[in-house]
Design a protein around this nucleic acid. Structure first.
Lengths: 221, 221, 221, 221
DNA sequence: TATGAATGAGAGTTCATTCAT
DNA sequence: CATGAATGAACTCTCATTCAT
């Protein structure tokens, strides 16, 4: 006979286990993040990460295949968060230039400033480490490109213009990503004092809107 | 008493020595470049570089303090070459938008394509390795910024416009560097097939000219 | 007051428990056997054995003190089986050379061929692992020696001969064990194609009978 | 101009280097031998071997690819020595039964007794460690088999007999190797007090001569 | 009894750097 | 100047064993 109680008990226990496992997984990622970002990936020893996460080295290897794997998971998570964030901003403004403006502002205000470690890992510590890491970096940028490209095409449909050449959309997207990446890098990695995010934001948006406009031609209907 | 003869003999010998030393120094840098760019900085062993340069490991350490030092010198040389190249292009066209166009074209055609290893080291392998390396990277970018900024200001004087805000010039320069860096990265490091340098070049220039224009306001004289 | 009922109930339950325990114990040994024999003792992980036996790691440690202990119990069981088998063959033929022939045949046909894993563990995987394991290996061989020695002495009584020297019996026994061990090793561990058990068997028996004869001298009555 | 002196100096220096290298190689093998034989292969740590050889761990890895490689080289050397030794004994006595006698005696007196560590490694510590090690063990035994087989065939030619069956020669050789191996194992690994090499030697030879005779039939000329 | 996640000592291995020659 | 063998600290990773549940 089916016993809901013992079943629920089991289920509860299993649920708790699962919750704990996911928590620990996150704990490790959270511990690795500042270490990778501040000491550098190679300068960070597995033991430090384990200590910082209050987890044994063995447990760390239970959750992640190796150090590279840990970096990759961290990277993927950062990429996911960033896309989620930017996606929401594009949603807010419908398919318009406004969306690009909001997304640009959010990139600084909701990503770089509150999560500098995440940005440093994405733009600095994960660069040139290994082929596998680079593949994941590429994947993240490809998805971001796809997202921004989607927003661009939706805007095109709305506003009725055409691109100067077949590469224009690609160029616009890559340029946007490049501009923001470089500003973030100078600000976060080099802590360049000439980069004042508050002041720079508006000009950056103006610049890229100007860039976009120059590659989009009003269609005569 | 001054002995021109022995002096000259010494001088000749010293000159030869110096020439040889500089040659060897270059040989080592040249050997390290493709290894760092293709295998990666960490995956490249000192012994491998020495072998490739046909120099003993000990000699390598005579010319360079350590592995990091080698990377830094390589990086500095790459930065110098790039600045030299871009500077020449700006010279050619006087202080005009044309100069930006030429410099952009030259970046791809005279730097990325003929010297992919140099570009990969500048944009990938030297990233996030250590504070000292990062300082030199920053220095290189600062100088590039200064160069481009100079060209921009000369153009401003010539054409008589003013920037929308005090940050505009900074934003323009950083944006330009960011755009080109990202395109180079996708093309060289990820070998992204959607990046066709030939086709992209013109649009990139159009984009950034649009961007520049949008931050520069014609002055009413 | 003695309560047969509850007693019987307890007894039955206890019996079942004991049966289950022994079953599980065997299951674990049976799971470890092919793993040790095919992957090797050191290459086999405790977790793998537990999985294969469908038992938790904790349970495995309930039944066996540690990995070495598991190997020792396996080894002892293998030794017991082998002695049982050879003993039965000696019984069949009474105290005669025939018994040695039958035992030799049985060693191949009833041990090595149907239970190659057991033979591999006895002759290869348990060798040189630790002092404790080696003690048990020695014990097994000592008992086998004693068995064969017993058969030899019974044959001596029956047939009335004397050994050439006081060591002769020892030498005969050790030689027999050595010959069969080496053949089994070549056949099972190295899978030496020049070892054809079918064809070799008869010659091996002839060889050792010749050996035995040469160390036994007919007594003049 | 050719300078014999500096040349000789170079040559001498190079010779010394080579000598030192070979010496060091031997020193490491010599240091590993007693450790492997007495503590066991797995219980012996690389660091111990390096310490014992008064060599740094790094140097050890310069001479040997890894721990397994060290064991294999040790094993090969032991195998080579043993064959050399037995070969010389067979040579001494021409192609006769005497040769088998001498070789048997030499196995104990010139191998097992003076070099117990070598014998233990050959017969115990190298057993069941890995496929690669096992391949080398097999190779050694194959060569030993070939050597003994050669002696047997030469004796056959001299004495004019034929083997009972096509497998007889194989059986004789494998039996001889098995008998001596087992005696050595009991004596050296188990230090079995019932094995008195002095007394056992003669009987072992008698046994195997009897075995050989029983598989060889006088040819009627 | 039964579980299997957690532990952590300890292993092998690498390689930038040094220094006797 | 030149060599390259030698160093050994530092690193990642494994897995037998334990113990809270």
């Amino acid at each position: 006979m089916y016993s809901p109680e013992s079943n629920q008990a089991l289920s509860k226990s299993a649920q708790r286990r699962k919750r704990e496992r996911e928590q620990r997984y996150q704990t490790i990622l959270n511990a690795a993040e500042p270490l990778f970002a501040r000491k550098g990936y190679h300068q960070t020893r597995i033991e430090h990460i384990a200590d910082s996460a209050e987890v044994s080295v063995g447990m760390l290897y239970f959750y992640f295949k190796n150090k590279e794997d840990l970096l990759i998971h961290l990277l993927d998570e950062i990429g996911f968060r960033l896309r989620e964030l930017l996606g929401a901003e594009f949603e807010k403004a419908g398919a318009s230039l406004k969306g690009f403006e909001l997304a640009g502002k959010a990139f600084f205000e909701k990503f770089c400033v509150p999560f500098p470690d995440k940005a440093v890992i994405l733009y600095s510590e994960s660069v040139g480490q290994s082929n596998r890491v680079e593949q994941h970096r590429k994947q993240i940028f490809d998805k971001l490109k796809k997202d921004v490209l989607g927003a661009l095409f939706r805007m095109q449909e709305n506003m009725g213009f055409r691109f100067q050449s077949e590469m224009s959309a690609e160029v616009i997207v890559v340029s946007i990503l490049g501009i923001y990446e470089r500003i973030a890098y100078q600000y976060l990695v080099w802590q360049d004092p000439s980069i004042d995010l508050e002041k720079i934001g508006q000009d950056a948006v103006t610049f890229l809107v100007g860039g976009i406009n120059s590659l989009c031609m009003k269609e005569i209907k």
